[in-house]
C-alpha cells in the first residue's frame, strides 16, 4: 500500500498542465473515457484509448514504473475472466483484459493528477455529507496505518516472527499486529470524534467551493473525452 503514499505525493507535488486543470474537468474526462471503454467491443478502439492515456501520463510526467505496477492488478484479476471468455474466442478474452487495463489506466491517470481531497470535494456535490466524511476519515487513517503496519511487520521480521513458509505462525503474528493496530485505531477514532464534536461537527467536513475558473484547457480536455466517446460510438 506504499503506492498510495507515492500516488498522493505525485498528485499533490506534480506540476504539469494536467495537474493544473480543475478536478471537475478531469473527473468528467475520466467518466467519458470510462464509458468509452465499457461500451466499446473493439480491441483497436480500446487499444487506441490506452495509447492516448499513456501519452497523457507521459505528458504529465507520471512515473510509468508506478503505473505499470498498478496496472498489473487488473491485468491479473481480469485474466481469470478472460480465460473463461477465451473459450468462446481469443478476441473476447483479449477484450476483457484490454477493458480492465484501459479502465485502470484511466483511473490511475485521474488519481495521479488530482489529489484525493479534490476528488472528495467534487463528490461532495452529489454524495451525502456523512459518506464524504467517511471517505476523508478513511484517507486520513490510511496514512497513519501504513506507517504503523510497516513498523510492526519490520519488528516482526527482526524478531523472527515472520517466516516465509510457516503460514499458520505468520497468520497468528499478523493477527496480533492487526489487533494492536485496531485497538489503537479505535482509541484514535474516539478521540477524533471528540475533537470534531468540540469544534461543532455535525456532518460535512468538506464544503464545495471552487477557487479556479473553468479555463480553455479544461474545456479542451473535456472535449477530447467527448470526441473519443463519440468516435467509439460512431465507428
Amino acid at each position: 500500500m506504499h503506492h498510495l503514499a507515492e500516488i498522493d505525493n505525485i498528485s499533490i507535488t506534480g506540476n504539469s498542465v494536467i495537474h493544473n486543470l480543475k478536478a471537475v474537468s478531469k473527473m468528467i474526462f475520466a467518466l467519458f473515457i470510462l464509458i468509452s471503454i465499457v461500451v466499446s467491443d473493439s480491441i483497436v478502439h480500446i487499444g487506441g484509448i490506452m495509447l492516448i492515456l499513456i501519452g497523457i501520463l507521459v505528458f504529465s510526467r507520471i512515473p510509468l514504473k508506478t503505473v505499470g505496477v498498478l496496472v498489473l492488478y487488473p491485468a491479473f484479476f481480469s485474466l481469470v475472466f478472460a480465460l473463461i471468455m477465451m473459450q468462446q474466442s481469443f478476441e473476447h478474452g483479449l477484450i476483457v483484459i484490454f477493458k480492465a487495463v484501459g479502465a485502470a489506466l484511466n483511473m490511475i491517470l485521474l488519481i495521479t493528477t488530482t489529489s484525493y481531497v479534490d476528488i472528495f470535494r467534487v463528490l461532495s456535490l452529489f454524495l451525502p455529507k456523512l459518506l464524504v466524511d467517511i471517505f476523508l476519515f478513511t484517507y486520513r487513517a490510511l496514512f497513519i496505518f501504513i506507517d504503523q503496519i510497516e513498523n510492526l511487520i519490520k519488528s516482526m521480521r527482526l524478531r523472527g516472527g515472520y517466516r516465509a513458509f510457516n503460514i499458520f505462525a505468520n497468520l497468528k503474528n499478523v493477527a496480533g499486529a492487526i489487533g494492536v493496530m485496531v485497538i489503537h485505531s479505535i482509541d484514535m477514532s474516539n478521540r477524533m470524534y471528540q475533537i470534531f464534536s468540540l469544534r461543532g461537527y455535525s456532518g460535512g467536513i468538506i464544503n464545495w467551493h471552487e477557487d479556479k475558473k473553468f479555463k480553455l484547457l479544461d474545456f479542451l480536455y473535456v472535449l477530447i473525452s467527448i470526441i473519443i466517446l463519440a468516435g467509439v460510438i460512431v465507428f
Binding site: 500500500m1 498510495l4 456523512l130 466524511d133 467517511i134 471517505f135 476523508l136 476519515f137 478513511t138 484517507y139 486520513r140 487513517a141 490510511l142 497513519i144 496505518f145 501504513i146 503496519i149 492487526i178 493496530m181 485496531v182 485505531s185 479505535i186 484514535m188 477514532s189 474516539n190 477524533m192 470524534y193 470534531f196 456532518g203
Partner: peptide, 14 residues
C-alpha cells in the same frame, strides 16, 4: 462515523 473510516482504512491496510 470516524470509526467507520478507520475500519475502512484497516481493511485496505489488511
Amino acid at each position: 462515523i470516524p470509526m467507520t473510516g478507520v475500519v475502512a482504512a484497516l481493511m485496505i491496510v489488511g
